[in-house]
């Protein structure tokens, strides 16, 4: 091989490597563009629009005003009158999301614990089934619960036909249900109600709870609970003093994740919640896509909902750090 050949080969190699760098740069460029166009840009647009101005009887115009945020916290009539309608909606968002996420985690926990004690093959079947159920949309699930809880064809009818309604009346519990808004003078009535809303929201995220808890629970060392048993701990004491403290971080993480997910829940709330208990997510939809045509205020609500969720996640992170430091 001559020196010239060698130089030629090196040059070729340099060309190949520059081609590799170019391909890499193109790939990064495409990925960055996708991120910017589909994730960051819409997010920035929502923030920018939240400072826009609604035009009475028409749409909205670009502007820079804090009126939408002011309206969220003190109401439309400020300074003549202070109303907390939108804060109340945010409160209901938290109310439904907290109860539904805690309920989902509490019910998923014993199920997942039992699941981890099954044979591997049985566990796999259950996990596939649960993963498959995640493919069902919120609309589909809510429709199912809507039918199940409907007064004419669902559970109330079953209560009436089987005589359960009459039995509830006989034992005096029917009045309690009426007081809770779960019965009319004739029969039980599950919707619209907070009960139906929370139940559906819990059902919606229950498979996520199982999937998120499963890795931590399957890694749980069974000898820990066995050791506790040999030291005189009953099953409940073992759960209280060994199992739950051992998985407190995954429990907290799962609850937080489901909570944030449920903050944006729209269909369950709009179908099952009473009009006085609508959430921020429903209000956002009404403003942006509904009859209000007030995209700037809807965007401001979305930004505030997002900030609220971020604050919750931050506190969760702090709690997590504190627990890990122990």
């Amino acid at each position: 091989m001559t020196i010239a050949d060698d130089i030629g080969m090196r040059a070729d190699r340099g060309l190949d490597s520059s081609k590799g760098i170019n391909a890499k740069a193109v790939l990064y460029g495409v990925l960055t563009t996708i991120m910017v166009v589909f994730c960051i840009l819409p997010f920035i647009l929502v923030i920018v629009i939240s400072f826009g101005q609604k035009v009475d009887g028409a749409g909205w115009v670009w502007a820079f005003t804090l009126a939408n945020y002011q309206r969220f916290f003190v109401g439309l009539l400020w300074p003549d009158e202070v109303t907390f309608l939108y804060l109340q909606q945010l409160g209901y968002s938290f109310y439904f999301a907290i109860i539904a996420s805690v309920l989902a985690v509490l019910t998923a926990l014993p199920f997942t614990l039992l699941l981890t004690r099954l044979r591997r093959s049985t566990q796999a079947v259950w996990l596939v089934f649960i993963l498959a159920s995640l493919s069902m949309s919120e609309v589909f699930i809510v429709m199912g619960w809507d039918i199940l809880l409907s007064n004419n064809s669902g559970l109330p009818k079953l209560f009436e036909v089987t005589g359960l309604t009459q039995w509830l009346k006989d034992v005096g519990w029917f009045q309690t249900l009426r007081d809770m808004g779960l019965a009319n003078p004739r029969n039980v009535k599950f919707k619209p109600s907070s009960f139906a809303t929370i139940l559906t929201m819990s059902y919606l995220v229950w498979p996520y709870a199982v999937i998120l808890l499963y890795p931590a629970l399957s890694r749980l060392d069974p000898s820990l609970s066995e050791a506790a048993r040999t030291m005189g701990a009953s099953r409940w004491t073992v759960t209280r003093t060994v199992t739950l403290p051992s998985i407190r971080l995954p429990l907290l993480g799962t609850t937080l994740l489901l909570f944030v997910f449920l903050l944006g829940s729209y269909v369950s709330v709009s179908v099952f919640a009473t009009p006085d208990k609508q959430t921020t997510a429903v209000a956002i939809y009404s403003n942006i896509r509904g009859s209000n045509m007030d995209a700037p205020f809807g965007s401001a609500q979305a930004v505030i909902l997002l900030i609220s969720a971020s604050i919750c996640l931050y506190f969760g992170h702090l709690l997590n750090n504190k627990a890990e430091a122990r």
Partner: peptide, 10 residues
């Protein structure tokens, strides 16, 4: 096991 209370090292 919790009523036997045999000390055990795993």
């Amino acid at each position: 096991a919790h009523k036997r209370k045999f000390g055990m090292v795993f």
